[in-house]
């Protein structure tokens, strides 16, 4: 009866706990212990009768999403109370690569596995540039850089901090030292600082007006820190122009870097094509992409699309 199994079921579980992170962000912990979520992945969260939206996963145990109250579906999510039901599909999408032993999948199903201009770069999966048999046996998954990282740097802008927390927590569980730079417009926009403090070696906070941490942007802090310390890998999630600047700097310094993109998603499973960026799908090939890869996308940092598919300049 294996053929009749549903691979992407709609889960419904109870809300374990709700935490108010700031004036407009709530974290929702869900009673779902057996889920295998990895940092960078997302859930498609459904409010019956209203709609479904992608929400990045903030933690796996307990399964947690952080929701900014910015629209109809997120507004309804903010009204939910402890003990009530929440429905979602997932985890979906390509996670951040921490050099850990990911599930062996010898044949990569992402759209990057073909020799197109967009995918001719090194250290990709076996189908595009033929990594040798030995390393294929070892991981089977595209590897970022070589060897295991000892020190990683994460940069989160705005709500981009949310997946960074899950990443830093996972890094710590595997003996990797994580450093975090987080930024917001002002003090009330800085989220997850306390959570990060628990799992990171150091946390650097910046605000535009200096009301919390250093006055300035995460970019200034990043440029300083990347000179100050040696980092094996860098990860970032936040405004795309910020990620682009970080990706460019990392490529220049030859430090492996991954970014997490956001596009208008509908199906979340690589079918409808709404979340395309230069022929790649944010929901399936991403949301996490390698810096070298995204820098080749003409739309990266420049163009996104609305629900109709109209191009919008950033």
């Amino acid at each position: 009866m294996d053929d009749f199994e549903i691979t992407n079921p709609m889960y419904t579980n109870r809300i374990k706990k709700i935490l108010e992170e700031n004036y407009r962000i709530k974290s929702i912990e869900i009673e779902h212990d057996m889920i295998e979520a990895e940092p960078g992945q997302f859930l498609m969260v459904w409010i019956p009768g209203l709609g479904e939206r992608p929400m990045s996963i903030a933690n796996n145990r307990p399964l947690t999403i952080s929701v900014a109250n910015v629209g109809t579906v997120s507004g309804e999510l903010h009204k939910l109370k402890q003990g009530e039901q929440i429905s979602y599909r997932g985890p979906l999408g390509r996670p951040f690569d921490l050099g850990l032993q990911y599930k062996t999948e010898l044949k990569c199903k992402t759209t990057q596995c073909v020799s197109t201009e967009n995918s001719k770069f090194e250290n990709k999966c076996d189908c595009c540039c033929g990594i040798d048999e030995a390393s294929k046996q070892e991981s089977g998954h595209p590897k970022l850089g070589t060897g295991n990282p000892k020190h990683i740097l994460t940069i989160g802008g705005g709500y981009g901090v949310v997946p960074m927390y899950f990443l830093c927590k996972t890094a710590r569980e595997h003996g990797i030292d994580a450093y975090a730079i987080i930024g917001g417009r002002c003090e009330k926009d800085v989220v997850y600082e306390k959570h990060l403090f628990v799992v990171c070696k150091e946390v650097f906070v910046t605000t535009d007006d200096g009301s919390r941490g250093k006055k300035g942007t995460v970019m200034a802090e990043f440029e300083w820190l990347i000179k100050e310390k040696k980092f094996d890998w860098v990860y970032t999630c936040g405004p795309e122009k910020m990620m682009k600047a970080i990706a460019e700097k990392c490529v220049e310094l030859k430090i492996p870097c991954q970014v997490s993109l956001e596009r208008h998603m509908k199906c979340g499973t690589g079918v409808c094509g709404s979340c395309a960026i230069n022929g790649m799908l944010t929901c399936k090939d991403g949301p996490v992409f390698d810096a070298e890869q995204v820098l080749k996308f003409s739309e990266f940092g420049k163009v996104s699309r609305d629900g109709c598919g109209n191009r919008k300049e950033m």
Binding site: F4, N8, M44, W46, E52, T269, S274, G307, C308
Partner: peptide, 20 residues
């Protein structure tokens, strides 16, 4: 509005509504 695509035991049910 979503979910636009749901999986069933024997295929997909989709209702995209011609976004374009």
């Amino acid at each position: 509005e979503g979910p636009n695509i749901v999986e069933t035991e024997c295929g997909l049910l989709n209702a995209m509504g011609y976004p374009n």
